[in-house]
Simulated assay, not measured.
Amino acid sequence: MTRAGKALPDKRLPATHDSLAFGVPSSAPGTMYALVSSGGLAVPPREGRTVLFGRNRPEVHVCIGEDDRHISRHHGRLVHRDEQWWVGNVGRRPIRLPESRLLFTDEEPVPLTEGYTPLFIRGSGGREHLLELYVAGRDGQRRGAGRDEATTPPRTWRLTTTERLALTALGQRYLRHEAGAQPLSRREAAACLDRLRPGEGWTIKRVEHLLLGVRGRLSRAGVPGLTREEVGEPVGNALNDNLFRELMVSTTLVPPDLDWLHED
């Protein structure tokens, strides 16, 4: 199949486009945005409209995993029917949806809800390729915005480059939208970072220091649930779980941050 005969997307998104986790501009209800690291597109709704994604750039609308032969040439499709967008898998490897749901080859397509949906496809060497999707709601903006209200963005917390790297390693299960996500242990995160960035002094103590620093800073700024006094005993992993949920909800950390963990 070639591009000939396929409806062209109305708007291309550049590689520099912000993560769709930050939301989208005011758009016609049902407009579907699709974004990968090399760019993407925005497609208005229309019955039967189809968007193909996979690694064969000349034959798909969104090219994902172009240099990874574990990704199929045509890996999946997004189709608009019955006033809704649906995602289907036609590739060899499953597509992972939020909450660790796997969509297998030729399985019944899954409807997309309004708002943000990240999809992951496992490639070579354990790498996971991210396809971000966003379906504009009936108000054309973020979910939760009133019809006549401007969208209020969440407060995003400032992190240093080193903090972002450490928190991405610790919170990678949250960024992958895994079911029942919990942070990696400090030992696991330090080992991950030392493998990716040898010689930079990644130790358990360094990861712990960065984690406690961010948690303390956000607590002092008014984020609840980040101290033992608030949570009570037994604390378990509640403090860090609360931290990562705040970092996700505030879009301080977004799924494209996982690129920090990719080996060169």
Score class of each variant (00 low, 15 high):
187 R>N: 11
2 T>K: 14
17 H>D: 01
256 P>L: 09
86 W>T: 02
3 R>L: 13
66 E>A: 12
143 R>K: 03
234 P>C: 00
103 L>P: 13
42 A>Q: 03
38 S>E: 15
24 V>C: 03
187 R>H: 14
44 P>H: 06
184 L>Y: 05
34 A>I: 03
214 V>S: 05
131 L>F: 09
47 E>T: 15
263 E>Y: 13
217 R>P: 06
60 V>Q: 07
39 G>A: 10
22 F>N: 09
173 R>E: 06
233 E>V: 08
156 T>G: 01
127 R>I: 06
32 M>C: 15
187 R>D: 12
102 L>W: 12
201 G>P: 14
221 A>T: 01
242 N>L: 02
142 R>G: 07
135 V>Y: 00
50 T>P: 01
214 V>N: 00
179 A>I: 06
29 P>E: 00
119 L>K: 01
123 G>F: 10
82 D>I: 08
5 G>P: 00
37 S>Q: 14
241 D>N: 10
55 R>M: 05
78 L>Y: 08
140 G>S: 09
178 E>R: 14
58 P>F: 00
8 L>F: 14
88 G>C: 06
70 H>Q: 15
222 G>T: 14
74 H>I: 08
16 T>R: 11
209 H>F: 12
20 L>A: 14
68 D>P: 06
118 P>D: 00
25 P>V: 15
118 P>R: 02
158 R>S: 14
171 G>V: 14
138 R>Y: 07
161 T>P: 09
192 C>R: 12
183 P>K: 04
90 V>Y: 01
101 R>C: 03
181 A>M: 04
156 T>A: 10
207 V>L: 03
125 G>I: 11
238 A>L: 13
229 E>M: 06
183 P>E: 05
230 E>G: 04
19 S>K: 03
126 G>W: 11
162 T>A: 11
250 S>Q: 08
262 H>Q: 13
55 R>Y: 05
248 M>D: 14
53 F>E: 02
31 T>F: 00
41 L>H: 07
222 G>F: 10
230 E>N: 02
87 V>Y: 01
99 E>L: 11
160 T>F: 08
240 N>C: 01
87 V>F: 04
122 R>S: 11
173 R>G: 04
19 S>M: 02
108 E>Y: 01
16 T>C: 02
